[in-house]
Amino acid sequence: MIVRKYIENNLKQLNKLYFGTNSHKRKLYYSKLAILELCGWIEESMDNIIQMCANRLLKLQATKTHIKRQIIDRNYGFEYKNHFIKMLSSVIGFMNIERLEKKLDASKNALLLSALGTLKIIRNAEAHTHLKGVTRHVDSPSITLNLFSQVFDGLKDIEIQLKVIKC
């Protein structure tokens, strides 16, 4: 089960720190950390959803172990199609992914896909650069917190629908 409490508290704390400082450089640090924290949580949550689905649907421990070691542990990203769907297809197949996507709340899924696309661009920029000066701009942690809500709602909908889908 994906959990909202810990990451939401972390993002709120970073937002509080952001608005509690006058240092532009510290604001950049808090903003960058909020983005990286959220993206790490997304990857862990996607992995968790895949493992729970595998544990529920697969019978052989060897197959469950294979999913963990060869699929989940080798995944390093959170893009919907390139990472999440690729892992999910290993467990339920593309036919069931189509069935799943038809059952998803369209607005939650659209917001999820949009937020993931936005976060990928921002995360890649932040993960592959360092703070050379203080002229850069990074959105405040409150923006990241808003993206978190969209991602959480979309992933929660997927998690719920996976529990009821007949594979």
Rank of each mutant, 00 (worst) to 15 (best):
G20P: 06
I158D: 00
V3D: 15
V138E: 06
A110Q: 14
N146I: 08
G20D: 11
L11T: 07
T65P: 00
N22Y: 09
R26W: 06
K108N: 14
L88E: 01
F152S: 02
A34W: 03
N146P: 00
T144I: 15
L147V: 01
K68S: 12
L33D: 09
F94G: 09
N55P: 01
V134M: 08
S114P: 00
T135H: 12
T21I: 09
D73F: 11
Y76C: 10
I92L: 09
C167A: 10
A115E: 01
S142R: 08
I42T: 08
R56A: 12
A125Y: 10
N109C: 06
N15R: 08
L58E: 07
K102I: 10
T65G: 06
A110M: 09
G117I: 01
K12L: 15
A106D: 07
H83L: 07
I2W: 06
V151R: 01
A54Q: 02
N55R: 10
M95I: 11
K5V: 10
N10E: 12
Y6M: 12
K81C: 05
L145E: 08
Q13R: 11
Y76Q: 15
I143L: 13
L112Y: 02
K86H: 12
S89V: 12
R99W: 04
A115M: 04
I67F: 04
F84Y: 11
V164G: 10
A106M: 09
G20E: 12
W41C: 03
Y6R: 14
I35C: 15
L28G: 02
S142N: 11
L57I: 13
L100R: 08
F19Q: 10
L17C: 12
Y6T: 14
Q51T: 02
Y30D: 05
Y18R: 04
A125W: 04
Q150P: 00
T144H: 03
L147H: 11
E79K: 15
L131K: 03
M87Q: 13
Y76D: 15
L111K: 13
V151Q: 01
G77E: 05
I72M: 07
R136F: 09
E98N: 15
Q70P: 00
K120C: 00
R4Y: 12
K12I: 14
F78K: 02
G40W: 04
L88R: 01
K102C: 07
Y18W: 14
V164A: 07
M87H: 04
T118D: 14
K32P: 00
I49A: 02
L38M: 09
F148H: 08
I67C: 06
G117N: 15
D73A: 15
Q161I: 07
V91L: 06
N9K: 14
I122E: 04
L36K: 02
K59I: 14
K132H: 11
E44P: 00
K12W: 04
Y30K: 07
G93Q: 05
N82Y: 09
H137R: 12
Y76G: 13
I49T: 03
K120F: 01
R136S: 11
N75T: 15
I158A: 02
S31F: 03
Q161R: 14
V134G: 05
